[in-house]
Amino acid sequence: MSATIHHLGGTGRAPSLDAMFQLVAADLNHVNSVILERMQSEVALIPELAGHLIAGGGKRMRPMLTLACARLLDYGGTRHHKLAAAVEFIHTATLLHDDVVDMSGLRRGRRTANIIWGNPASVLVGDFLFSRSFELMVEDGSLKALRVLSRASAIIAEGEVNQLTAQRRIETSEDQYLDIITAKTAALFAAACQIAAVVAERDESVEQALDAYGRNLGIAFQLIDDAIDYASDAETMGKGVGDDFRDGKVTLPVILAVARGSDEERGFWRDAMEGRRSSDDDLAHATRLLRAHNAIDDTIERARHYGQRAIDALGPFPAGKAKSALVEAVEFAISRAY
Rank of each mutant, 00 (worst) to 15 (best):
A292N: 11
K321V: 01
L72P: 03
F189D: 14
R60H: 08
Y338L: 12
V138K: 03
V161W: 00
K144S: 02
D226Q: 11
E265G: 01
D263N: 08
A322K: 13
A319D: 15
L83M: 08
R309C: 03
F189K: 13
G242Q: 01
Y75L: 11
A25T: 02
A231Y: 09
H97S: 04
H305D: 11
A121I: 05
R151G: 09
E42K: 10
I5S: 13
R62A: 10
R302W: 02
L283M: 09
R13E: 14
L49K: 06
G118H: 05
A295F: 04
E48C: 02
A333I: 05
V161D: 00
K144E: 13
K323S: 03
I181S: 08
M237D: 09
V198E: 13
E301W: 03
S150Y: 01
S131F: 07
A209L: 12
D179K: 12
R288A: 08
T251V: 10
E265V: 05
I296N: 03
E331L: 10
G238F: 09
T94A: 06
W269H: 06
R169T: 00
L124E: 05
R111Q: 05
G58P: 07
L326R: 12
H30S: 15
F245G: 13
R111N: 05
G275R: 01
L49S: 06
A186E: 00
V43R: 10
S278G: 12
C69M: 14
G77W: 02
A284F: 06
R132A: 10
L129H: 01
I311N: 11
F245I: 06
T78M: 00
Q163R: 14
F21D: 14
A231K: 03
L146V: 01
